[in-house]
Every structure is written in structure tokens, then in C-alpha cells.
Amino acid sequence: MGKKRKQRETEVVAPPKKDMSAEERPKRTLLGWKDKSEEVGKESDSSGFRNKEKVLVTCSRRINFRYRHLMLNVVSLLPHCKKDNKVESKASKGATLNELVELKGGSSCLFFECRKHKDLYLWMVKCPNGPSVKFLVNAVHTMEELKLTGNHLSGSRPILTFSDNFDKDAHWKLLKEMIIQIFGVPKEHRKSKPYHDHVFVFSIVDDHIWFRNYQISVPHNEADKLPRGGLENMTLVEVGPRFCLNPIKIFGGSFGGPTLYENPFYISPNQIRALDKKKKAGKYAKKVKAKTRRKMHELSNQLEPDEFADMWKE
């Protein structure tokens, strides 16, 4: 009961506070003193919901430069995020990170964990009550790559598109909800811009979540008269970054708790490497074996002496 309960609490707590503040003085806004009546009207108009998502983005120590750049790209895409110092990988188990998120006042966390300088894991966590998801990140391309030619406003709210197989299963549904909350920029966030010029793609292919970010571009002279013919001329240019998330596990709590889901197809990269090594190790033994077998074969069926062997010698 993370978000919901919180709201209920605030709603319950709010009225007495308001009464008290009415006695003292109204809240101050940029335009002057806020009227009580106006405040009430506004609240009813937006049905009382305000997205106060704040994402803490951090990474483990000894992270690869490429993955660090990926993290920075994510930071640049999310105006509602807070970047923090690297965290010691060993200490990342639960408590420290939870504390950190609480300290920063975040409601969710993206933690990039790099192991052995090659494997990147991404923790996507709702704080403080969970759930948390651990992904293996594949196919990373950062925004710095020159072939990604798009560009968009920093802090404009992205449009999130999901492929329809997100509604297929319970864990995908949960992931979708988490992605909406974490990657969606809150409306009227102070760092966000009032226009929409990029699209995020979250698509499940081969049981992996693929991420793409496209800029919406319309021919220059037609930007003003979009309502009429602009829709056909709309094209997308990729901005980046690209990555592919392979969900490994979903936990009930934040950075821990009971396991709710386990990817049945998952093999860890360590296992893959071990398998590779094993394959390579067998090579020499196989060669030796083949050699001895050949020798045995030659011994068992010897060639008959050639009758023409000394024909030309005389």
C-alpha cells in the first residue's frame, strides 16, 4: 500500500492543516498569496491526484563507462529524477539503498548495478513498499552514438507507447505500471516543458522489454499548421539510448522481500561464460582422442604390401 495509502493520509491530514493555516496566513505562491477558495476549486478540478514521483538514479561502483553513459542518458531523459553518488556494490543489498532513497525523498529508484565490468543489471524499485524488479540489460547503445541523429527538448514529457502484449500476463502488467510511473514525467513538473516532442517505445519481443526513444519531427514550415496536413508528414528520428531489459526476478519489497516472479528461461551470463569455457576446454582432449583412435585404426587394419612397390628399382 505505497502510493494510495499515502494519499489517503495526506487527504486526511490536510483539512485540519488548512484550517490552521487559515488562522495564520494563506500559502504563498509566485503570484502572491493564495486564496483558500481557489485552492479548493483547483483540487476538485484535478480530482485530487497529483503525481509526485521522484526517481533516484544511481549506480554501483566500478561501473563500465558505457553503462555509466547509459545512466547519464536516462538521467537526461527524466527531469523528475535525482542522480546520486555511486554505491558500493556489496552494500547494495537492501538497507543502504533503501535508506538512500528515503534520504533523498524519492518514491522510486533505478539502480544500475555493474558486475565484473561487463554485466549490467538494472533494479527498478518502488520505495518504500516495493515491488522491485531486477533486469539484465542487453544491447546497450548510448545517446552519444553518432548514428542516432535525433534531438529533442530536455524535460519535455514523453509519450509512452506499449506493445499490447504487456497485458498478456500479471508480471507484465505490473512492469507496465512501474514503467509508466517511473519513466512518465509528472504533469506540471517544474523542470518539465509544456510540449511533447518525443516518444518512448516499450515493446516486448522475445520476452525482453526493448526500449527506444524517438523524436517527433514535422517539416519545419508545417509545424504551425499541424492540425491540417501535418499528421501524414510526421516522421520519427531516433534519439537514443537503446537497451533491452530481460526481467530476472520480481520481489515483493523494495530491494528485497519475497520473490513473486522468477524468469524460467533465464541463464545468468556467468553460466553462459562457463559453458563457453567448457566447450573450449574440450577441444584439446578431443584432438588427442581422435589421434589415438586413428593410430589404433591404422594398427588394426594394416595396408597389404604393394606388389608394384619395387617395379622401377631393378
Partner: peptide, 12 residues
């Protein structure tokens, strides 16, 4: 409201 989410499901 949708405006808070900005999410769309696209049929693959």
C-alpha cells in the same frame, strides 16, 4: 486522467 500517464497501447 490520461494526461497524467500519457501511455498508449499499440497493437503489435
Amino acid at each position: 486522467g490520461w494526461i497524467h500517464k500519457l501511455s498508449l497501447d499499440i497493437n503489435q
